[in-house]
Amino acid sequence: MIEAFRQYFALCGSLLYWLFAAPFRGKPWRIGHTFAQIVRIGVHAVPMSALTALTIGVVLAMQSAAQLAKLGATVYVPGLVSSSLIRELAPLVTAVIVIGRSGSSVTAELGTMKVSEEIEALEVMAIPPMSYLIIPRFLAMVIMMPLLTVFSIYVGLTGGWLIGHYSLNMSTAYFVSHALQYVELSDVGIGLLKSGIFGVLIVTIACSIGLNVSGGAEGVGLATTRSVVVSLLSVFIANAVLTALFFF
């Protein structure tokens, strides 16, 4: 446990070096590799994020409509959907999706490279794994998490609109204006900041656990599970802390 923390902070330390110091010492970020990772980590997660966000938007609208109808206050449905999506649910649900499909695959891939000596081979070829493997994944994650979150917000609102429009007979203009009435631009900013922080957590945890795999294929399996569990817990805890900081 202590060892895991030590490994994690060691990774974060050298990540800082490779992010901010190395580019000024003639070791720039690898843009091509980063784009490849953006596609793998981010773009491929789009369909799943979309489907999840859509169902969440629909469910939010239905639940709130059912409750608010008793008070005759369905007028608040759009605002409730938009504020909970933007402040909480879109960043969180996107993080969960990304942990499940991208964080786990980063850990599994790096772990496999570790046990098959590929990481060692890179080091011996004087190609630092931090620059070749970790920085591109880090940048990809930090860029893609907020983008995926924006996308999820949009799709989630569409889900809410589906219910509002077809079941509660709101016009599109009515839905949109009420949805926007209860959120500030700063809410969007904070939602995106949250998702960026989640992205940093997910990718650093995935990389740290992946790079420190030992024990062959079994070790890779265990590490992948651990990466998902630890990332989920960290993201939920971070979310609670951030919500307390910004909204409470």
């Binding site: 000596e117 081979a121 004087a126």
Partner: peptide, 14 residues
């Protein structure tokens, strides 16, 4: 390390 090459027992190809 730029001055030596290493063949790993497992090959360790990427």
């Amino acid at each position: 390390r730029g001055r030596y090459g290493m063949l790993f027992q497992s090959g360790a190809l990427l």
